[in-house]
Design a protein around this nucleic acid. Structure first.
Lengths: 254, 254
DNA sequence: GCACGCCCTTGACGTGGATCAACAGGCCGC
DNA sequence: GCGGCCTGTTGATCCACGTCAAGGGCGTGC
């Protein structure tokens, strides 16, 4: 009886058995996450970096704006939205984070977070104490390099969003969003053409600088012209090339 | 005769005498630039980081998208715009860089630049070979920390622009832009209320996600209601609080 | 199994900023 | 000093998206 219960626990918690829990070496996300591109022996040296796992229930927050910055988090499972609340009451979604992605880089500059991070589903993260990360990356050049790459890619990704917000029309924004999600799902071994949106139309709209009605309308239009099949949060991409084309119109135009 | 010429050179190039040229220790920008917040003895150790100065004439480019990434640049004098050209022909200004600010962080992730950087006036930069920066920051914790801070602030700054582009109206965008410029001029010891725009209306519009006509109209409106006095590129801020209020409306509303 | 609330969809209408167009001022080369 | 070009201003019109409103599907708790 006792035994049965333990086993169930291990199963539901995936590879959450105490010892393996904090090992990057054995993590199936290592090629998406912090250890990506690092040599095998280097990865072993960073096993100790992750001190704790943390579970965050749907709707709960992982970090709050204003809190002191201590740790970065690597998403182990589930997904999150990152939001900024401005002084004047605006609240905007600035990104969605999936497994293997790093959260908390906003806190480094001022030692306190400026971004709220909220779980879109029951999720789990690996906490990486930042002072340890800095120490270890002074010793392991591969870790240092990889951390710099991650920050730089964050910067580049945001520039992409700036272009989206600054110069794309509603249809292009939504198409770009779907293509981007599709790529990220594929990179994680999921279907690139069929997936479940974890966020509401309002959250998508906030991220894309559109109102939820516009997001809904554009998706319906894509559905009507046969680019996708969409039913509430379930998405099926019927014509990936067409969607890509809708995301950056003139690309295939020449 | 020979002597006279040398002296003139030194004057015009500011502190550009060969030895001092590459010294962060003596640079009057050290509290805005890479050495900011570092201990005196640490700053001495990074003197050697800057190997070369580079002059860039107005309209010339400092780096081009697609070029291999070798160095970061610290703006020594003058100013730049950073632009992304997307595959589908869009070209958007993603930022303006002033003295003390670091350029080139976009290249770290992929080892090649994705951003074009163009001088808005005759300018000068300090080149910081990135491999040297990584080496030295493994030895000097203060440099490592400061470099991480700079990257993090870049990320946070871009999130601010995302909020601007995603949820602000035209007047708020322009007001925010002017307030931001004002702060940066003040931080550099210039007047916060009277300055010269180095960029055109079109460049401002591209950055703010507006058309040049809209930028012009909004500025004229600000002029008419007495917030600013604007004549072509010359700006005089008459009512800083009012402008701040226009930038985030409900802030002072409660 | 029913009722409530949340999320999504769809329609009708309004508007902020884009577009199109004309013109004016400043700067540069000749 | 003059003409051409680039940049900026301003007006008239248009349209993409926002706003307002109604209704429907689906999950959840009692």
């Amino acid at each position: 009886m006792q035994v049965t219960i333990d086993v169930t626990r291990h199963t539901d918690a995936s590879c959450a058995s105490r010892d393996l829990a904090v090992r990057c070496t054995n993590c199936n996300l290592r090629e998406l996450c912090l250890p990506q591109g690092m040599a095998q022996d280097e990865v072993q040296k960073i096993n100790g970096l992750v001190t704790t796992r943390r579970r965050v229930k749907k709707g709960e927050s992982l970090q709050h704006a204003g809190e002191p910055f201590k740790s970065l988090y690597a998403v182990r499972s589930g997904s999150f939205k990152t939001c900024i609340a401005t002084e004047d009451g605006r609240d905007q979604v600035t990104g969605f984070k999936m497994s293997g992605e790093i959260i908390g880089l906003d806190g480094i500059g001022t030692n306190s977070h400026i971004i709220d991070v909220i779980a879109l589903e029951d999720s789990e993260v690996c906490a990486i104490p930042f002072s340890r990360l800095e120490e270890v990356s002074r010793e392991i050049a591969g870790l240092q390099k990889q951390f710099h790459r991650i920050m730089s890619r964050e910067i580049v990704g945001e520039q992409g969003v700036m272009v989206l917000l600054g110069s794309m029309r509603a249809e292009e924004r939504v198409a770009t969003f779907l293509v981007n999600l599709s790529r990220r799902f594929r990179a994680r071994g999921y279907s690139a053409t069929e997936f479940h949106l974890r966020m509401t139309r309002e959250e998508i709209g906030s991220y894309l600088g559109l109102k939820l009605e516009t997001v809904s309308r554009v998706m319906s239009r894509f559905h009507d012209v046969g680019l996708i099949k969409i039913n509430q949060k379930h998405v099926l991409i019927l014509n990936p090339e067409g969607l890509q084309e809708a995301a950056s119109p003139s690309t295939a135009g020449h």
